[in-house]
Nucleic acid binder design. Structure first.
Length: 243
DNA sequence: AACAGTCCCAACCGCGAATGA
DNA sequence: CTCATTCGCGGTTGGGACTGT
């Protein structure tokens, strides 16, 4: 077979190019995937964990045939795919627990999450950043300032308690919350008293609250849905802060 | 309808702690 | 004990969804 020098050179270029392409393809194949998870990836992860259990995330990722980091797999499982994940709005009770525990422990999200079954640390952290910090910003005070902490303790938390009592006035059922023993059990009582709600949360008067007297006027705070934002008017918060 | 601004959350990153060789 | 690897936590960000003009 006779080929010209030029043809030979062209073939060589093509072969070299092919090698380059193959190298890139190989690289892409082993390249770690990032960004949103696909349905197939989710299925792979779930089925692998259901068979072999969780843990050893790096090797799990490889064994499950996922081009993801172990970290990414762990995060996806813990924050999204776990069967016991609770979705939907943060309830008033949960809001109360978050505020209370944050006042004790600060940004210890995973520790706080342990007291909210089905909620992830990421979810609580997001809740805090988007809802609570937003209010601090509106009030032009630092989220870690005593002023803002007092607002939460003496205004929002009592409001939450009253709101919970109001929504459950006929048959009050709550998760009996006790941070000391980390247990959550169901307690039922018939009451509309905010005091009862409070003691139901704490299993007694473990936390000293400020007086509610100056907050009881005007029912308009409770208008609207169950969101944190509807509990207090911005004007009222400002007034209270100025006091 | 189109655009801008804001909200929200999934996912990433860096770092320190824990674990294992 | 040391070093490398893995894990878990808290902070941050990108981008889709939503809302207002």
């Amino acid at each position: 077979m006779n080929i010209s020098r030029t043809e030979f050179a062209n073939c060589k270029t093509l072969i070299n190019h092919k090698e380059e392409v193959e190298e890139v393809e190989k690289k892409m194949e082993i390249e770690i995937r990032r960004g949103p998870w696909t349905v197939e990836e989710d299925m792979k992860l779930v089925s692998y964990i259901s068979l072999h259990g969780e843990g050893r995330w790096n090797s799990l990722s490889r064994s499950a045939g996922l081009n993801r980091t172990g970290k990414s797999c762990r995060l996806r499982w813990l924050n999204y795919l776990r069967p016991d994940i609770r979705r939907g709005d943060i309830s008033l009770q949960e809001q109360f627990i978050i505020l209370e525990l944050h006042s004790r422990w600060g940004n210890r999200w995973s520790k706080i999450a342990q007291h909210l079954p089905g909620r992830t640390d990421n979810e609580i952290k997001n809740y805090w950043r988007t809802r609570v910090q937003k209010h601090a910003k509106l009030l032009k005070c630092d989220v870690n300032s005593k002023q803002f902490k007092d607002t939460i303790k003496h205004l929002w938390m009592p409001r939450l308690i009253e709101r919970i009592a109001a929504t459950q006035s006929v048959q009050f059922t709550s998760n009996h919350y006790s941070p000391e023993n980390s247990s959550v059990a169901t307690a039922t009582s018939s009451t509309s008293s905010s005091e009862a709600v409070r003691s139901s949360f704490y299993g007694g008067d473990q936390v000293e609250f400020g007086t509610l007297d100056h907050m009881t006027n005007g029912g308009y705070w409770f208008n609207g849905g169950d969101t944190f934002e509807t509990l207090c008017s911005f004007d009222e918060l400002n007034k209270w802060l100025i006091q």
